[in-house]
Amino acid sequence: MATPDFVLDLRQAIGTAPLWLTGVTAVVLRDDETTGATEVLLVRRADNGAWTPVTGIIDPGEEPADAAVREILEEADVVASVERLVWVHVLDPLTYSNGDQAQYLDLVFRCQWVSGTPFPADGENTEAAWYGLDSLPELGGSHAQRIALAVAANVGTDAVFEGGHPA
Rank of each mutant, 00 (worst) to 15 (best):
R44K: 14
L91C: 10
S81Y: 11
H89T: 11
L139H: 01
T157M: 11
G163V: 03
D32G: 00
D31I: 00
P4G: 01
E127V: 05
L91F: 01
P137Q: 00
E62R: 06
G140Y: 14
A67R: 04
R45I: 04
G156R: 01
A128F: 12
N125S: 07
T95D: 07
T95S: 06
T95L: 02
L133W: 03
V86R: 09
V151F: 03
V69S: 10
P64W: 02
E71P: 01
D134G: 07
T126S: 08
V160A: 11
T35P: 10
W130R: 07
G140W: 09
R44A: 04
A26K: 12
E162Q: 13
S135Q: 11
T52N: 08
G116H: 06
M1R: 03
V28L: 03
D9Q: 09
L8F: 10
H165A: 15
V114C: 05
R45F: 10
T22A: 08
P4L: 00
N98I: 01
I72K: 02
P120N: 02
A80V: 00
Q103I: 02
A68R: 06
G61L: 11
Q101V: 08
F109T: 06
S81D: 13
A152Y: 00
G99Q: 08
I58E: 07
A150D: 02
L139M: 02
P93E: 12
R44F: 15
V90W: 13
A50S: 13
A159Q: 06
V27N: 03
A129W: 08
D59P: 04
A17F: 09
L29R: 06
N98K: 02
H165M: 15
R70P: 00
A121P: 09
L85E: 12
V69R: 11
V86N: 01
L73M: 13
F109N: 15
A121C: 11
L105R: 05
H143C: 10
A144D: 09
P4Q: 06
P64F: 00
A67Y: 10
V160F: 05
E33V: 09
A167Q: 15
V114F: 01
N48E: 13
A128R: 13
V43W: 15
V28C: 00
L19Y: 15
T25N: 04
P64I: 01
W130E: 05
L149G: 05
D9E: 12
E74V: 07
D5S: 11
G163M: 06
A152K: 04
E127H: 12
S81K: 08
T35F: 11
T126I: 05
V78D: 02
G36S: 07
P64C: 03
R30L: 04
R44L: 07
G23Q: 01
E74G: 03
Q12L: 00
T157C: 08
L94G: 14
A152F: 01
H143P: 01
E124L: 08
I57T: 12
D66G: 10
A128L: 11
P18A: 01
T55G: 10
G163A: 13
